[in-house]
Design a binder for these strands. Structure first.
Lengths: 122, 122
DNA sequence: CGGAATCCCAAGCGATACTG
DNA sequence: CAGTATCGCTTGGGATTCCG
């Protein structure tokens, strides 16, 4: 199956599709956020609880980027106290589907390995 | 001061499998490296060419971590000039399978979106 | 409650030189 | 070729405060 490798790049001058995807959900938190939102963890404070170790600044930043990339939407309720709900867009759902295999891989290997850095509740 | 730590929160009873996976391939480069190695880009200098923007230090570091996590192996040939070949382990192959949907997602969206920041291009 | 704005420090990372 | 070693700057992101 090995391809012939010349001097040329594999994906020149266009990007590797994988790099494009990583451009959107690459990072430590975004896949977790997308997955959590799909599970109904759709508010700022709820996400904060489910992501031990993340700072408010980081969470806000990641949410903004996900919104900018149209993976999720913000719905603001003018109430007291104020409320904001996040939900996945169609694009977000399609990306979630692509992320789920990573979740399944984790399930398969959870029995054999223990996490080193991050322990996150679901 | 009020550095009161809730152990129950930091070490929750159930670990998110997705977090475990991200612990292993989370990051900007690792999915790309795993995919490239599977395509036969199995030497240091070849990988360096295929990853414009990565520094030698970073590439070496990521390779060490992937090796430590037993996703790939190093084979050293005592030749002149020296040669080192990387290849995926069984675990690495299983993870590659879980990463491929992200690749496919990128393919689907390449037509609609253009990359923004971390453009891997030449 | 859900953020935005500031301050600030150390880890992270790039660039370069060097080595087996 | 395939890396290490070293230096120095950048910036990620933690802590805190303030606002609608």
């Amino acid at each position: 199956m090995k391809k012939e490798l010349s001097n040329a790049l594999i994906y020149p001058p266009v990007l590797c599709p994988l790099a494009l995807t990583l451009d959107v959900i690459g990072g430590k938190w975004k896949p977790l956020i997308v997955h959590l939102v799909s599970q109904g963890v759709n508010r700022f404070s709820l996400l904060e609880k489910q992501l031990p170790g993340i700072s408010r600044k980081m969470l806000a930043n990641q949410l903004r980027e996900l919104e900018r990339d149209e993976l999720l939407t913000r719905e603001i309720f003018a109430e007291i106290p104020p409320r904001v709900e996040y939900s996945l867009t169609e694009t977000g759902l399609s990306l979630l589907a692509a992320v789920m295999p990573l979740y399944e891989w984790g399930v398969q290997h959870l029995a054999h390995k223990q996490p080193r850095h991050t322990a996150i509740q679901l």
